[in-house]
Design a protein around this nucleic acid. Structure first.
Lengths: 238, 238
DNA sequence: TAGGTTATTTAGAGGCATTAAGGAAACATA
DNA sequence: TATGTTTCCTTAATGCCTCTAAATAACCTA
């Protein structure tokens, strides 16, 4: 790919992949606390400090691996979208949402790092690898919503019904997405996102175990609600 | 209170309180990772291993402190409820929700431990102090919803519209709350809870920073939605 | 006042993050 | 091909953490 595909570079990439795989294995098999620099290094067959030639420290390693998770989840969602290339936009939208949940419950530990990074402040830098990956992730559903908005606009609230503060924030957000959705449409999009992603977070964080053993029907009902909100309840699969 | 209010016991309680206060101070001022057995002991003026006479280990200490947070939040919510003893049930319900958010955003670190305990498995034992505290917490809004259901039943979905799996789970949950809400009403209650608590979790976990700087109006809109769902939108403060 | 319980201490084993210093291999180039 | 540089990795070494064990002081009680 890049001009710099020297032998050295290839070896380095292979090592990086091995490191990430080892970190992920530790996370999945033994939990977040088991992902230590030393343990990862041991898995890869090097001793401790060697990892500092690849990452500046523990936090950066975690950030890089988390970015991997973001990218994997993003790819899964894009696959679900592209597998239905010709289908109605509503179908594709719901399929992507389902793909998101399917991945999340199949990979709870990884998803846990996605939304509740063990280390909050360092990983939230605007330029961090993690942040970039998070943006692409959010982009997937945003893109679909924009397409829906363009081809078949969904109902939006009367701006007069929104508080001044909310209108202001929505206008700012609309600008950050290059006005692809006007503020009111952005509001609908964000409301849907909050319900969907919030439900998923609570499920994976076991905040709903006191009442539910299987959240699949709850998620499906949430999707039906969103379909109504977005006016895609007729063409989408029931 | 108890028959065992010996001098020893009183001293022990005082020490426990001091330990909890130190742990909380460390959490708030320096983050989750700073709450170590050693650091806490240092704050209280004892040296390391002494803490093992009060808690079996780091996890148990964290669990006990988290239970404190649950109780404090519960108390805040109960205060908000009781301060409006004569008010319409809808008023009280919304006041309790607002009190919950107010506490959560005033104490983000503490709230973080409440829903995303640094240590998941050990603290989720059914008999743990933490679990008990979590139940009382959930009880507050449940109680109010039950009162609302008894005095002015809110609309519920047609059971035929719910999937078999969901009906089953709701029936089981209805039983665990002694049938104080029938399954369909429990479904409405849980849906509201998911939206409310989910929004709060996302706010505190900074999952919405990409779009919002102040979630107060978003929360208020969520409350308006819930008020409509529960049929309390006329008597509750706008 | 003697014996038992409780609170707390020091010592120590084992692990982790991180820095420092040095060695060996791979690479580039004169 | 010989030399210098870059890259990768290792072994100390520091300082922190958890947790166990053994010893000591303080307190209560019979």
């Amino acid at each position: 790919m890049s001009a710099h595909t020297s032998r050295r570079e290839r070896l380095r990439q292979a090592t990086l992949e091995e490191i990430h795989a080892a970190a992920r294995r530790l996370l999945v098999e033994q939990g977040s606390a088991a992902v230590t620099i030393n343990a990862v290094a041991r898995q890869v067959g090097m001793s401790g400090p060697a990892l500092y030639h690849y990452y500046a420290g523990h936090d950066e390693l975690v950030g890089a691996v988390t970015a991997d998770f973001f990218r994997e989840l993003t790819a899964i969602m894009e696959q679900a979208r592209d597998a239905r290339a010709g289908a109605p936009i509503g179908d594709r939208l719901l399929a992507v949402c389902r793909a998101m949940r399917t991945w999340a419950i199949a990979h709870p530990a990884e998803f846990g790092w996605i939304f509740a990074s063990p280390i909050a402040p360092p990983n939230r830098g605007a330029g961090s690898v993690r942040h970039q990956a998070a943006l692409s992730f959010e982009q997937v559903l945003l893109d679909l919503t924009v397409e829906l908005w363009r081809t078949r606009p969904f109902p939006v609230p009367d701006p007069a019904d929104l508080s001044a503060s909310l209108r202001e924030q929505l206008t700012a957000y609309s600008a950050t997405i290059d006005g692809r959705l006007p503020p009111e449409a952005a509001h609908v999009f964000l409301s849907c996102w909050i319900r969907l992603y919030g439900l998923l977070c609570m499920e994976v964080l076991h905040q709903l175990d006191f009442a539910y053993t299987d959240l699949e029907p709850v998620f499906e009902e949430c999707l039906r609600d969103l379909a109504v909100t977005l006016g895609i309840d007729d063409d989408a699969a029931a």
